[in-house]
Design a protein around this nucleic acid. Structure first.
Lengths: 201, 201
DNA sequence: GCTTGATAGTTCGTCCCGTACTATACAGAT
DNA sequence: ATCTGTATAGTACGGGACGAACTATCAAGC
């Protein structure tokens, strides 16, 4: 009989698991200095939300967790909304650096209800038309953030993130336009789309 | 004083919420007829996994839920692994059709730790190089599924899904290659990337 | 009949998300 | 001064989703 996980010693109190979302919070705090959950939410929307969506409620729960793990400090306003102001501790700073400096990343993943509907038999043109609109809209939004980006110590990283998002949206809009002009041949004839690209790496 | 949600009548017993993952399961069963959780997992990997990832454990839990809601039937093998075989009920079939036929879809969303690291200051070249490899690999995988796709009632939808995945990966590989050959100008100079595209719709 | 690797299924804890809700601030109307 | 609407800010909570770790079955080759 093999050892059961319940035979293992209990995990020590402050070893909480750091997820991608944890690092998103740590990075935002690194950029902003001391900040409230609401500040974090705002900053995320203007930078990494396109590649790492975080619902606003998480910005209230997650810093709490991180603070309990010793990665953040808190202090609370006396009056008014009694907002909580979080900031990185040296531990938090170190954890962030260690993660950011290691080259391993988990695989990119996509969640796209439109393609799920195509899989279920929906008309691809309807889905793609909708998506083109959203992507064009998002593209404008990201370009706006880029134009309003102010110089700071971290502007280069934010800029790189925004440029990546812009390139991503453009690439997909191009792809959609190609499909929409090809019409239904996309669906009927697999060989109609030439394959000049394929894998090099 | 406003009405509290606890004043509302309790939700009826079989109104369970159908999520995207629920519809993925329903669609797979529609394609496969009667199937085990393992069958579902396999079929997903060869079709929609690229746009709607589902961990294998979900294929054991989710059909159970759906069956309790009256969307599926179950029967269990007598001996051996006692596998459970699920199939759509008319209710399930109807729910699937209703969903697939309505044009509304939630927004596509991406979860990409690589870009999160770029946001945290990592070198984009390292990240993009890694991603190019994965995408090239995925492209080959998807092309393999397409080549081995057998004719069936539902082949057109599966084909459309695979072609969408292939076009998606190609578009992003092109984008990455463009970046990698441009070198660091991407990072230094926002105007270096011309903008012939932008929003039409 | 044993070993090995592929196939198949389960348990569990926690993360994470969305919905709905509450509360505060402030500007303009009355 | 108070009311009303809107933007800003924060909270509660239930349950879906996820992934690590594990167990079990089967088929093939020796």
């Amino acid at each position: 009989m093999r050892a059961d996980r319940r035979d293992l010693p209990p995990t020590t109190s402050n070893s909480l698991r750091l997820t991608g979302t944890s690092y998103a919070v740590l990075t935002l705090l690194h950029h902003l200095g001391e900040a409230t959950p609401y500040d974090l939410k705002q900053a995320l929307e203007r930078s990494i939300a396109n590649f790492w969506p975080v619902p606003h409620t998480t910005f209230y729960a997650e810093p709490e967790r991180l603070q309990q793990g010793g990665y953040l400090t808190v202090r609370q306003e006396a009056g008014g909304r009694k907002r909580k102001l979080y900031a990185l501790t040296p531990t938090g700073e170190a954890a962030l650096r260690e993660w950011a400096d290691s080259p391993e990343v988990s695989r990119s993943q996509l969640r796209d209800e439109g393609t799920l509907k195509i899989f279920a038999g929906a008309d691809p043109r309807v889905i793609f038309t909708q998506q083109r609109q959203w992507r064009a809209q998002k593209l404008i939004e990201l370009e706006g953030y880029l134009d309003n980006l102010r110089d700071s110590e971290h502007a280069a990283a934010i800029r790189a993130t925004l440029l990546t998002g812009i390139a991503y949206e453009r690439a997909l809009i191009e792809m959609i336009d190609r499909f929409l002009s090809e019409g239904s041949s996309f669906l009927q004839d697999a060989d109609a789309s030439a394959r000049p690209l394929d894998a090099k790496g």
